[in-house]
Amino acid sequence: MTDCGCDKAKAELEEYLHNELCSTDAEDIREHLAGCVDCESELHVGRVLTEAVQRACRETAPGDLRDQVLLKIRTIQATH
């Protein structure tokens, strides 16, 4: 176990958020975050953004809007 430092923590933050790191790297970053206010703040921003994107991906357009967009796409495709 080593202190990974801010550069490594910030470079691997997204993978850390998505649980895509090996356990050793994840533990190094977890320990670094526990003692670094700046990197912990970056983690918070990353979590907020990840949650916002996940919420946005669950939303769907109203049926009539979807139908209008698809009709417009088909009309454009038919003329090209």
Rank of each mutant, 00 (worst) to 15 (best):
L70S: 11
G63F: 00
T60Q: 09
V48N: 08
T60V: 09
E40P: 02
T75H: 05
V37T: 11
D25T: 10
G46N: 03
E40N: 15
L13I: 06
N19G: 15
K10P: 00
R66V: 06
T50P: 02
E20Y: 00
L43C: 08
R58Q: 14
H18I: 00
R47G: 06
D38Y: 15
I76G: 03
H32D: 13
C57Q: 15
D38A: 14
E59A: 10
M1A: 00
L21N: 04
E59T: 10
A78M: 06
D28M: 15
R47Q: 14
G35T: 13
Q77N: 12
C36E: 03
E12M: 13
L13H: 08
E15F: 00
D25W: 02
L17N: 00
R58D: 09
E42W: 05
G5Y: 03
L71P: 00
V45F: 14
H32A: 09
E27L: 12
V45M: 14
T2E: 09
A78V: 00
L43N: 07
G63W: 00
C6H: 11
D25Y: 00
V69M: 08
G63M: 00
L49W: 08
A26V: 02
L21Y: 07
E40M: 11
E42F: 07
T24Q: 01
R74A: 13
R30C: 15
H44R: 11
P62G: 07
D7P: 01
L13W: 13
L13F: 12
H80N: 06
I73S: 06
S41H: 14
C4Q: 02
C36I: 05
V69R: 04
H80D: 04
E51G: 02
E59D: 12
K8N: 07
G46F: 04
D38Q: 11
Y16D: 03
G5D: 01
E40H: 13
R55Q: 12
E12A: 08
V48R: 07
I73T: 10
S23Q: 13
R47E: 09
T2Q: 10
P62A: 11
H32I: 05
R55G: 04
I73D: 12
H80K: 04
G5N: 04
P62E: 15
H18R: 13
I29F: 05
L70F: 14
A52S: 13
L65R: 01
E14C: 03
L65Q: 06
I29Y: 04
L70G: 04
V53Y: 15
R30L: 15
A56N: 05
D67N: 06
E51H: 11
G46Y: 03
A52K: 12
E12K: 07
L71C: 07
T2D: 05
R58S: 08
D64R: 01
L17D: 02
R66F: 04
C4R: 01
R66K: 05
L70C: 12
